[in-house]
């Protein structure tokens, strides 16, 4: 059988991470753990799109500062967002004197960036890099759904795009290491409901996890947490239920960034958070620090992306999805 797990021989360390969020995320359960938040959703800029760039810029500067490096030491920048032409990333990083690769994997972008960064590092091609990912509720709503002030009702399975940017620095220093990766396949199960992206993404996560457990020597119990990006309530339930049917039980250790970032009872977010900033800021603010301190030893992180194009949907298309996996461990004492 073809081996698809990428086993990193030279394991990159996540030496620093930094998160910047909007006011709703700051008001959520992880509020105090984020490095920075802004009550003004425009982050002092004149448009939502520029605000998203500003978040990325602040996240990257924060992460670089935390890492103790200087920005010219970075070999490459890997960044992406949800906006057309990835303008959030392009504008944010235009002032950095480092090569830049723009990524689009919808909400899987955070894991995609880390996966590519880890591969380049493991191959000895680079020694350090930064990955940045962001999404902005207002900019996304405009591009993918309705104007912000449009009066409509959401269905219970709809999700709320996270306003946030997360940055990670990979180098050979630090207590968190990326051990393995698995590039997700594009899975299309025919879902076309823009208000049920969890259901569109769950099959991609199922496919990736099944392939990982089939090929690796690990089982779900080997991990403290199995973290999905933004399946939300609906997608998470589908994932757990259908994996159980396949004999893989992840009910005890599964968490979803979309469910962690907001309080669904208190905040009007329906099925939970989404957007590629969602997993980036939750990983950066909550998971990576716990891996660094040793509270968590071993986790699987799956960035889940719904590659939803309003134009394709208008033409009767569906929402293909992808989920990239990373096996991240505590590396202290090694």
């Amino acid at each position: 059988m073809k081996k698809s797990i990428l086993k990193f021989k030279r394991k990159p360390k996540i030496c620093a991470s930094y998160s910047v969020v909007g006011h709703m995320e700051a008001d959520g359960p992880l509020g105090k753990q984020f490095d920075e938040y802004c009550l003004d959703d425009k982050f002092g800029k004149e448009s939502w799109e520029k605000a998203e760039s500003e978040m990325q810029r602040r996240a990257l500067c924060g992460a670089i500062k935390k890492s103790g490096l200087i920005d010219t030491e970075l070999d490459v920048l890997l960044a992406g967002d949800l906006l057309n032409q990835c303008i959030g990333s392009n504008y944010a990083l235009s002032n950095f004197d480092t090569g830049f690769l723009g990524l689009y994997g919808a909400c899987s972008t955070c894991s995609e960036g880390l996966l590519i960064g880890a591969s380049l590092f493991s191959g000895g091609i680079i020694d350090t890099c930064a990955t940045v990912t962001s999404s902005h509720y207002c900019a996304s709503e405009r591009q993918f759904r309705f104007p912000l002030e449009y009066g409509g009702q959401r269905t219970p399975t709809a999700q709320w795009t996270t306003t946030g940017a997360g940055a990670f620095i990979l180098s050979d220093n630090g207590d968190v290491e990326i051990c393995e990766g698995l590039v997700g396949k594009v899975i299309d199960k025919g879902i076309s409901d823009i208000n049920n992206m969890g259901a569109a993404m769950a099959p991609a996560a199922i496919n990736t996890l099944k392939r990982y457990f089939l090929e690796s020597e690990h089982s779900p119990e080997d991990f403290d947490l199995i973290i999905t990006g933004d399946l939300g309530y609906e997608g998470s339930e589908i994932l757990k239920e259908l994996l159980l049917d396949e004999g893989i039980d992840i009910r005890k250790n599964h968490v979803d960034c979309g469910l962690m970032i907001f309080d669904r009872d208190r905040q009007d977010v329906h099925a939970g958070g989404s957007g590629c900033g969602c997993s980036a800021v939750v990983m950066s603010a909550s998971i990576i620090p716990n891996l660094a301190s040793g509270v968590l030893k071993n986790v699987l992180f799956l960035g889940t992306g719904a590659l939803m194009s309003p134009m394709s949907l208008s033409q009767g298309g569906t929402i293909p999805s992808v989920a990239h996996l990373l096996h991240i461990s505590h590396a202290g004492g090694k």
């Binding site: 219970p156 025919g190 879902i191 259901a199 099959p203 609906e234 339930e237």
Partner: peptide, 16 residues
């Protein structure tokens, strides 16, 4: 298959 999955998803989704 796609049809069965769509049916499963519609069946379990909480209605408005």
């Amino acid at each position: 298959n796609e049809k069965e999955y769509s049916k499963y998803v519609e069946g379990r989704a909480k209605k408005s």
